[in-house]
Amino acid sequence: MAPEPLLTAENLHLSFGTATALDSASVEVHAGEVLALMGPSGSGKSTLLHCLAGILHPDQGRVTYAGRDLTAMHDDERSALRRSEFGFVFQFGQLVPELTCLENVALPLRLGGASRRAAQRSAAAWLERLEVSDVAHKRPGQASGGQEQRVAVARALVTRPRVVFADEPTGALDTLNGERVMQLFVAAARETAAAVVLVTHEPRVAAYSDHEAVVRDGRVRTREYAR
């Protein structure tokens, strides 16, 4: 029997004013799986990611994570869950510009109560894993776009999240830099058995996924063909 999915969205509906963003959207992700959410701009793929991550609250429908109903949780409980079990990578602008790259990666651990020393040791190991040790003591602005994204991936993975949400993680990078980020990101996620929900409109990025779900007009087209 197939194991239960780690994260499930069932029949999500969400409107912003009169605009329907999600319309009966359902999707599921298993542990250790990379799922690509594809679709044109404005199709609802990022909205779906935000609902799955508990950042947005759907008007109707349910999001279940490891058997817990995210939609029925209190805000504090959901925030705590996001901090401890989820990781995030965005297109750009997610690092704190005043901190060094090492301090940026150590930050989530520090916020979780780790000592400065333990946090920095762990952060250094992740920077090495993502092949960006050379920018450890530089500020994000002094690193290249590709290096910055690898630092962002290190920061997302340093807490060993069970799900990493990535919204167009290579959107601001050229082909080769984007590819290297995806190679390192997916390899590291697989090593830690984290599930990845990846929003992308680029087929070459989606090719790093195990499955794809296509979002169009707020609806998820089936992914049965990918099985």
């Binding site: 087929p203 989606a206 996924s209 794809e212 992914r223």
Partner: peptide, 10 residues
């Protein structure tokens, strides 16, 4: 067709 193309791209 998209699914088939992506399968080959993977």
């Amino acid at each position: 067709q998209r699914a088939e193309h992506l399968r080959l791209m993977r």
